[in-house]
Nucleic acid binder design. Sequence first.
DNA 1: GGTTAATAGTTAAACAGGTTAACAATTAAA
DNA 2: TTTAATTGTTAACCTGTTTAACTATTAACC
Lengths: 153, 153
Amino acid sequence: MTYSIQELIDSYIDLSFSVHRKGESLIREQIEGDLLTNDQHYTLRYINRAGSCTSTELAEEFDVKKSAITAIINRLWEKGFIQRTRDENDRRVVYLTLTKQGKELYIKTEEKIYKLVETFIKQFDQEEIQAFIKTYEKLNKILIESKDYKVEE
Amino acid sequence: MTYSIQELIDSYIDLSFSVHRKGESLIREQIEGDLLTNDQHYTLRYINRAGSCTSTELAEEFDVKKSAITAIINRLWEKGFIQRTRDENDRRVVYLTLTKQGKELYIKTEEKIYKLVETFIKQFDQEEIQAFIKTYEKLNKILIESKDYKVEE
DNA sequence: GGTTAATAGTTAAACAGGTTAACAATTAAA
DNA sequence: TTTAATTGTTAACCTGTTTAACTATTAACC
C-alpha cells in the first residue's frame, strides 16, 4: 500500500468523481418518486437542520448565486413543501421553513438514504472506520480552508 | 475518535456533500476560462485516458442516458475539441477522440487541477495518507458493488 | 435469404439548475 | 437626507438531464 504522489492525486480525483457520480446516482434512487430532485432534497435537509434559514444562507452553503436558490425554492414552494415568512423587523429578509408536508417527505426520504449509507458503513471493519473518520475530518478541514484557493500561473 | 453508527452515517453524507459541492466548485475555478464546464472536462479526461471511446461507453461511465452524452459531445465538437470517426467495420459505431486543440486544452486544465489536488495531498501526514488510501480503496469498492442497491420497503 | 431483434447514435420537447444583469424594497452609513 | 449596501426576485440564456421517437446498421432465427 504505497502510492506515489502522482497516484495519490489520481486517487483523489477518482474518488471525487466516484462520490459525485456513482454516489449521487445511488442517492437519487432513494429519493421519493419524482417528487424531489437531489438538490431539492439537500435544500430540505439544510432548512430542516437549521429550523429556518434565508436564501442568502443557502446560496453560501451551496456555493451558488442567490437567483439559483430562488429558482429551487420556487419549485419547492409550488409543491407546498416550503413556507416563506417575511421578517417584520427587517422586511428585506424572508425566512424559509418546511411545511408539515415538506417535513414528512424530507424525513421519509432521509430514512431511505440513511439505510443506504448504513449498508456502506456496515461493510467497514474497525480499522476501516478509523481510517474513514481520519479522512473525513482531514478532507472537510482542507475543503473549508481551500475555499479561496487560486493556482499561481 | 469514537463515532456512533449514526454519526458515521452523518459524516458520510456530509463528506459526500462537501466533495460534491465545495470540491467541484474548487475544480471549476481551475478550468480554463469559460471554455469548458466541469462535465466537459471530465469528458475530455475520459476520452484522453481511453485514447478513443464511444458514446455508449461514456453514458455507462457517467451513469446517464446516451442522449445526454450526445449533447455534451456536440458542444465539445462545435468548439473543435473532439473528433468523430465512423467505424468502417460496424457503421453504427462512432469513435470519439481528442483533436490537437482538445488535447492541449485538456492537459493545460488537468495540470491546474493536479496542482490544486497536490496542495491537498501535501497537507496529509504519513498516517493520514495511509488512512486516505484505505478509505479510497474501500469506498470505490463499495460504490461499484452497490451499483444496483435497492432499499427494501 | 428474408424477416425480426437488438444495438449505436441522434433528435426534439420538456424540465432542473446554473450565471449574469437589472430591478424593487428596504435598511445602514455618510 | 442623500447615498451605500443588502435581500430577494425576475428575465434571458446556457448546460445537462430524461423520455420517446427515429435512422441506420448489424445480429439472430427460421
